[in-house]
Simulated scan of single mutants.
Amino acid sequence: MLANILKVAGLVSNNSTENSVAVLDVGFGCGDQTVALAELILAPSRSQFRYVGVTLNETQRQAAQQRLDATLLAADKRDVENTSIKLFQADAAKPESWDKAITTAVDNLSDKAFSERWLLGLDCLYHFSPSRKPIFKHASQKIDANVMAFDLILGDNPSLWQTLAVRLLGFVLLCPWQTFLTEAQYRDQLVECGYDRGDIEIRDISDHVFAGLAGFLQRQDAALKPYGISLTGYSAVGRVYDWFDRTRVLKGVIVVGRKKSKSQ
């Protein structure tokens, strides 16, 4: 998923390393995507690379830092001397709550020495409360960053009961009540936050998301049953994914939004 997001954003095209890159990664997990991102965009080969990660979970931050330290320790120091990676624990959905250290690190991403500045949200933005707007606005207005993400959006013409069902499922999954937007609403939100309507791409990749997840959970349940292990709860989740795949009431999408050029 990360590789495809970076491809749509143009960060891995032809393995070009001419541009210097700064990334604000929200919800970076346990560090695997941090390491993978640096590898995929060939960060050590770029003139400059700066990365700031923010996660809500302190245990994940610690795990990510350990993974990062181990990766750098195993690497040739000459390969990493021009990189700068900082990881923080905080609520990425509420930039106004960040302490001085985080604010300073994020603000430094706005340095004009970076020809590419990006906000990355990989499969997490639908959890942001009260909404995605604060982090979109912060990225747009404070660090002049484009946005790249995997997110979930409502289908184009959901019925009233389908919309209600999705909102109730979102509530169970600790998502804000109105987190799921239609594609048109999502575009409007990005434009409101400062992104160029003519330079927003929302690519539906549902064919590669829900059916695969549902099938995996079903196979795991079947494989473990002979050992007396039940995945009943996960099986229910699998049926939800299957419903998403069949109805497309909810779609998995790659989102890339770019700021307007200064000339515009």
Rank of each mutant, 00 (worst) to 15 (best):
T71G: 00
A70C: 03
L56A: 09
F114A: 11
L213E: 02
S47Y: 02
T104S: 14
A43R: 08
L37S: 04
Q48M: 15
P226T: 08
F49T: 12
A184M: 00
N15T: 10
N57R: 02
I85H: 01
I5Y: 00
K137M: 05
R239H: 11
Y186F: 05
T247W: 05
F180M: 10
V256G: 06
F244M: 10
N14F: 13
V237C: 05
S16N: 15
Q220C: 13
K86M: 11
F49Q: 11
K77A: 15
D204W: 04
V237A: 08
K86N: 11
L160F: 06
C193T: 05
V249M: 14
I135H: 02
S230D: 14
G194Q: 04
G53T: 09
E201K: 11
V249P: 05
I153C: 08
N108H: 11
L164Y: 04
A236N: 09
N4C: 01
A22H: 05
S206H: 06
R46N: 11
V26Q: 00
C30R: 15
S159R: 06
R167M: 03
A38W: 03
R46P: 13
T103G: 10
A75V: 05
A222E: 14
S84M: 06
T182G: 04
N15R: 15
G53Q: 10
L42I: 01
R219D: 12
A145T: 09
F150V: 13
G215Y: 04
V237W: 05
A105I: 13
V52G: 07
P134V: 00
C30E: 13
Q66Y: 11
S13R: 15
T247V: 12
A236P: 03
H208K: 09
T232D: 08
Y195P: 05
S235K: 14
F128N: 03
T103A: 12
R258F: 08
S230K: 15
R239Y: 04
L250Y: 02
K112Q: 13
D242I: 02
G194C: 06
L125K: 01
Q60W: 04
L152S: 09
Y126G: 00
F114R: 12
T163K: 08
L217S: 06
L160W: 00
K112H: 10
F171H: 09
T103V: 06
F114G: 10
A149I: 02
R203V: 11
G31S: 09
A149S: 08
I5Q: 08
C175E: 01
Q48V: 12
V166G: 01
I85C: 07
R46Q: 13
T182R: 04
D207C: 01
V256D: 07
N15Q: 15
A165T: 12
V256S: 03
